[in-house]
């Protein structure tokens, strides 16, 4: 078991090593001493697993591992961002007063910004028009490409709403679909949006 954990950590470490340069040099390096060697740069987002040296005094059952189930309207590809984009540590507000990033994200009005925390696999959105700033755009949605630019969707278990307790898997757009902190690119985008390249990866103009 511990061997698997170590292997997994080595893998994560290797991935991080390949990409942390963008973090270390950018606004997401929030460490006090810029100590890359000790993982200080990574800790704000990647929490190291602790040992069991410090059990609870009052809750022996919960003492070893703290597992927290995700059931949120916002998926893990956005929650991590929002934990620091809270209005204190980092910007939380959109350019419209009285609206948060999540308003843009979770609302049904797509004219302001791109939504996050929404299911991409809804076939009703596959064709027809989508609202854009100043009108509507004809077009269709295609699945995000699995290769460059890699734009991941995040799977999310939700109740299907039939009252039978059946769970279905949604594939959601989250902040991390288009953004990654592991880069020093403009707006921390996963790929340059020159000529709206990132947008048209999913929004095509062909019928």
């Amino acid at each position: 078991m511990s061997r698997i954990v170590i292997l997994a950590m080595m893998f994560v470490g290797a991935v991080s090593m390949a990409s942390f340069g963008g973090v270390a040099d950018g606004p997401h390096n929030m460490s006090a001493d810029y100590d890359i060697a000790n993982g200080e740069v990574c800790k704000p987002c990647h929490i190291p697993h602790g040992s069991t040296e410090d059990d609870y005094l009052w809750a022996q059952q919960d003492g070893v591992a703290i597992a927290v189930r995700a059931d949120a309207s916002l998926g893990h590809g956005s929650l991590l961002c929002m934990s620091c984009h809270d209005g204190v540590t980092a910007i939380s507000q959109s350019d419209t007063p009285g609206e948060t990033l999540a308003d843009h994200a979770l609302g049904t009005d797509l004219t302001k910004d791109h939504p996050v925390g929404v299911d991409y696999g809804d076939s009703s959105r596959r064709a027809g028009t989508v609202p854009v700033r100043g009108g509507r755009m004809e077009g269709i949605l295609v699945d995000p490409p699995a290769t460059s630019p890699y734009l991941p969707l995040f799977s999310h278990e939700v109740d299907d709403g039939t009252g039978t307790g059946t769970m279905v898997t949604e594939h959601r757009i989250e902040c991390s679909t288009c953004h990654t902190p592991h880069t020093d690119a403009d707006s921390l985008l996963r790929a340059p949006n020159t000529g709206s390249a990132l947008c048209v990866a999913c929004h095509t103009s062909q019928k």
Binding site: Y56, W58, D71
Partner: peptide, 23 residues
């Protein structure tokens, strides 16, 4: 603990007592 979605309780010496919240 914002990321863990819980509130942790500690005694005066900083010894962990329990947590609540989560899901």
């Amino acid at each position: 603990d914002n990321k863990m979605r819980i509130v942790k309780l500690f005694n005066k010496e900083g010894r962990a007592l329990m947590h609540f919240g989560g899901a």
